[in-house]
Design a protein around this nucleic acid. Sequence first.
DNA 1: GTCTATAGAGAGATAGAC
DNA 2: GTCTATCTCTCTATAGAC
Lengths: 209, 209
Amino acid sequence: MNSTTNTNKKIKSTKEKILDAAFELISTYGYKGASVRKIARAVGIRESAIYNHFKNKDEIFKEIMKNLFSSPIDDFFDRKPLLESAKKGRRFLNEYVASFKLVSFDVKNEKFFKIIILELMQNSEVRELFLKYFYQENIKKLSQAFFVMMQEGIIKYSDPMLMAQEFFAPLFYYRLQITLLRMDSKPTNILSTIFEKHVSFFWENIAII
Amino acid sequence: MNSTTNTNKKIKSTKEKILDAAFELISTYGYKGASVRKIARAVGIRESAIYNHFKNKDEIFKEIMKNLFSSPIDDFFDRKPLLESAKKGRRFLNEYVASFKLVSFDVKNEKFFKIIILELMQNSEVRELFLKYFYQENIKKLSQAFFVMMQEGIIKYSDPMLMAQEFFAPLFYYRLQITLLRMDSKPTNILSTIFEKHVSFFWENIAII
DNA sequence: GTCTATAGAGAGATAGAC
DNA sequence: GTCTATCTCTCTATAGAC
């Protein structure tokens, strides 16, 4: 174990520094606005030095894109057996939303979210990943969970896919609002409990009894 | 009434042509990407000629911004007395959503929507208008409508503001998805009836009986 | 692996002839 | 009101010295 493994305090390589600076700049100015000039200045090197680590600007973005959708929400589904924990009904939804809320208020994840929105209308690959991530990953798994709940007789019978979308959409909407408010340093206290309220509102309406 | 009033087929002035071209370009490339060069080329004039009609590039964007949020959804609330039509309950929601759906699939409005998303993370004024429009205009009026329904005993008692947000959020989410799918010429048939399904799902859960 | 120097394109904007 | 010509800046990227 030498310094190159960067176990603890990690001395960052120039390549890592470039990626960090690029990530920061792209999340505020977007891909076009984050120029190689700005990135180099942020790192403290010349533009030409960038090209010793990346073939071109696009390669930098591609590297950052790899982590764009690997957020803690995925981990949520990985952490526990879906079909088993779904049986917990409302408690399952509470846990899911708590995880989503944590991600929404996390600074690093907020920057990823900003990049997604910034590039959504410009980059078809981002669109592809966006639809895949929010659909395949979240909606599909949520609909499975709702299906389990129906089978268990905890909630009313309905279209699980529709239910999943109806459940997820407000989460996305609230997250977007939080991000926008925070960008202009506006208070988000109105939204601090909205996630919990959402679960209550939703549950009241799908639960049996 | 002479040719300058442009009553019927309207011979467009250069200024109008510039605005049209700029609108088109901004909706695909964003503000930064829609260069004065590109706009001039699209109109068929030189860049310098642009400056006879607008002080600078920013003035062009400001002019377009004026119409950014004056969409037909506003008209919906203007057209009919809110407190009276809200008493119709589900029929009111159906009409509101039908209006929203029309806007979502309208090509011109889709371009406005794209500009909003493109500039949301870059332009604080767009953010301001976005929050104002979607909050003050839509959510506030919807919550008034829900309050009326509660008073009338058509729906269960609850927080009208929360209800309005929960009702509106999926509409926004579905609209975004439709826009993204259409950008890559992907089928939207899965979403063609989602707006109606949303009303059904929501209504079932708030209605008394 | 970093630097200087430079190329070549595209950006916003202005001066002045017609 | 449109043109040509031009200025100044910023951008991505490469060549070659150290």
